[in-house]
Design a protein around this nucleic acid. Structure first.
Length: 305
DNA sequence: TACCAGGTAAAAA
DNA sequence: TTTTTACATGGT
């Protein structure tokens, strides 16, 4: 099936950027291959860009599913509706952000298949390094997910709601976080919390709905609004990782405070979250290529191999 | 070996 | 009301 991205899109670059945030193992594939629940059954999805970085994307699923559902899922995973053009236009004249965005033309944030998974990602990443959180999720997935052709679907709310705190803890979650995960799964199952219904709601409304669950504070709300709901202006300004990486481009060595971070990104409103994502990805990709710490202007002008 | 890592809720003051 | 503490694993 053919799907179009709104505006520029570079799948290979987006995959490389996504991988740069995780403990990587070798070469990053240029095809997005993942297992998801589609029409209620585990399905392998393959998404590729047959003509380089053209906005045309091709996707297929096994077993074959309804075209409408398949199209929706593909568009969701690659943020197809996100149009990068206004963002690039806004930041182009900026001495730091301009070169960074230009070096990453077509970079889009890739999303997990469901907002439920996004919320669990947020819980696992609270206070822990991304690497530690990654391994905890890997154990959750292999214990409670469904295996299909060498891939795993993320565990359903039903499976996690039914899991014992002991088994969740065995995956590396603290007892507290195990409770958060179980509570969240139960709320979704019971319909108390409907992530998808919230998609059409305001940031504030989503915020309220999330905060009423144990385990979700300001950081998690902003993280999920930005990465999950794709609200391009949202970002967790209290985030330690962002404070460090943004400081490399807009600071003087020391980690930024939340207020300083807000200040530094204010010129990029209403795309502050996207700007933060670009800066993070830029740094991570340079890092992966073996770059050493240097000043903001040199850093911003370095090209991504 | 410590200490910190892309926080949060609950206890203590 | 505000401040302090416990908590999980992995990297340095």
């Amino acid at each position: 099936m053919a799907v179009r991205s709104k505006g520029p899109f570079d799948l290979a670059l987006s995959l490389r950027a996504a991988a740069s945030f995780l403990p990587t193992v070798g070469e990053v594939p240029v095809i997005l291959r993942t297992a998801v629940q589609l029409d209620g059954r585990p399905t392998i999805l393959e998404i590729q860009q047959p003509f380089g970085t053209s906005s045309l994307v091709r996707g297929s699923s096994l077993p074959v599913t309804g075209q409408r559902r398949l199209r929706e899922m593909i568009k969701w995973l690659i943020s197809a509706d996100l149009d990068l053009r206004p963002f690039h236009t806004l930041v182009a004249p900026h001495p730091i952000m301009g070169p960074v965005a230009a070096a990453l033309l077509g970079l889009k944030p890739l999303r997990p298949a469901t907002l439920f998974e996004m919320a669990i990602i947020a819980i696992t990443e609270q206070q822990l390094s991304l690497a530690a959180a990654f391994y905890i999720r890997a154990r959750l997935v292999s214990r409670f997910g469904t295996r299909l052709d060498g891939l795993w679907t993320f565990p359903s709310p039903e499976r996690l709601a039914a899991a014992s705190l002991r088994d969740l803890g065995a995956c590396g979650l603290s007892h507290r976080k195990a409770e958060y995960v179980k509570d969240l799964a139960r709320h979704v199952m019971q319909g108390v919390l409907d992530f998808d219904a919230l998609r059409r709601r305001s940031d504030q409304r989503i915020r309220e709905a999330l905060l009423s669950n144990r385990g979700f504070g300001e950081w998690s709300v902003q993280y999920i609004l930005g990465r999950g709901y794709g609200r391009p202006d949202c970002l967790p300004s209290g985030d330690v990782g962002l404070q460090r990486v943004i400081a490399r481009y807009f600071g003087e060595g020391r980690r930024l405070t939340a207020a300083e971070l807000e200040q530094a990104l204010s010129p990029f409103k209403p795309f502050r979250g996207l700007a933060a994502f670009y800066l993070s990805a830029h740094w991570r990709l340079l890092r992966a290529a073996g770059a050493t710490p240097i000043g903001p202007h040199e850093l911003a002008s370095m090209s991504i191999a």
